[in-house]
């Protein structure tokens, strides 16, 4: 993140030039909003997808591991450009907000109005608290290393507790068919999905013999480690894509 340090005072634009650069800002903001809804949502839906779509996929092991790990990618890449080149600490919040806008529109119009699934069965998870911390961390530290370690970890560790207030009530037990189920499992059984048989769920696959059933914190800490690495990796991916090179041929 080195920059040429040539402290020189330049005057801010005024008059027409100020209006012009502001108009350019708005154009870029509109462009970026749809870009990140479209691209981050596609990336997210095809990597986290099912864990985020369905209430009966939000388990203690895979959901808090996979979601932050795949969710920290675009935020890191966008921060690498917006902070490094513009000192704008909003890359993570912008990406996650865009993702949620796209997600909510789809859950309502594609799942509910088209195919009659109740919206509470397809509630998305939120990564916004982690994104806010990630942006604030980068701004205050101005350091890739500190943001990757502290910010990346916070992004992963905050995920489960951020979402438990939304999803805890779906984990209330019910007696059904001579067995114990959660309300979430019952959604999966009752509300018919032709392409999502129960066995397809990748949930609760560990044995947990020695850890006193503390599955979610373990998954979160594992995710924290991976998010640290993922953040740094995607920071450089973001930088690489933001090349300004012109080629003589392709």
């Amino acid at each position: 993140m080195s920059l040429p340090v040539t402290t020189q005072s330049i005057k801010p634009y005024t008059g027409e030039k100020a209006r012009l650069v502001r108009a350019y800002d708005y154009l870029i903001l509109v462009l970026a909003l749809f870009l990140f809804i479209g691209s981050f949502h596609l990336h997210f839906a095809l990597t986290v997808g099912d864990w985020d779509f369905w209430v009966d996929w939000k388990d203690r092991q895979w959901w808090p591991l996979v979601t932050p790990l795949m969710g920290i990618t675009f935020p890191a890449a966008v921060q690498a450009v917006l902070w490094d080149k513009f000192r704008l600490p909003l890359g993570a919040t912008l990406c996650v907000t865009a993702l949620l806008i796209g997600t909510w529109i789809t859950r309502i119009f594609a799942y509910h109005y088209w195919n009659f699934f109740p919206v509470n069965m397809v509630l998305p998870a939120t990564m916004l608290p982690g994104a806010l911390v990630l942006d604030a961390m980068l701004m205050l530290s101005n350091s890739l290393t500190i943001t990757a370690i502290a910010g990346g970890s916070a992004f992963a560790l905050l995920f489960y507790p951020s979402n438990w207030p939304i999803f805890a009530l779906f984990h209330q037990p019910v007696e059904y068919a001579n067995a114990q189920l959660t309300l979430a499992d019952l959604f999966g059984f009752q509300y018919i999905r032709t392409g999502m048989p129960e066995y397809l769920r990748i949930i609760e696959r560990g044995t947990l013999r020695t850890y006193g059933q503390y599955a979610a914190p373990l998954a979160a800490f594992c995710s924290a480690l991976l998010c640290t690495l993922m953040y740094a990796l995607w920071w450089y991916i973001g930088k690489w894509f933001a090349t300004t090179r012109y080629l003589s041929k392709i």
Partner: peptide, 9 residues
Amino acid sequence: SYFAEQDNS
């Protein structure tokens, strides 16, 4: 975004 995730639905 929209039509992509709608595919799952």
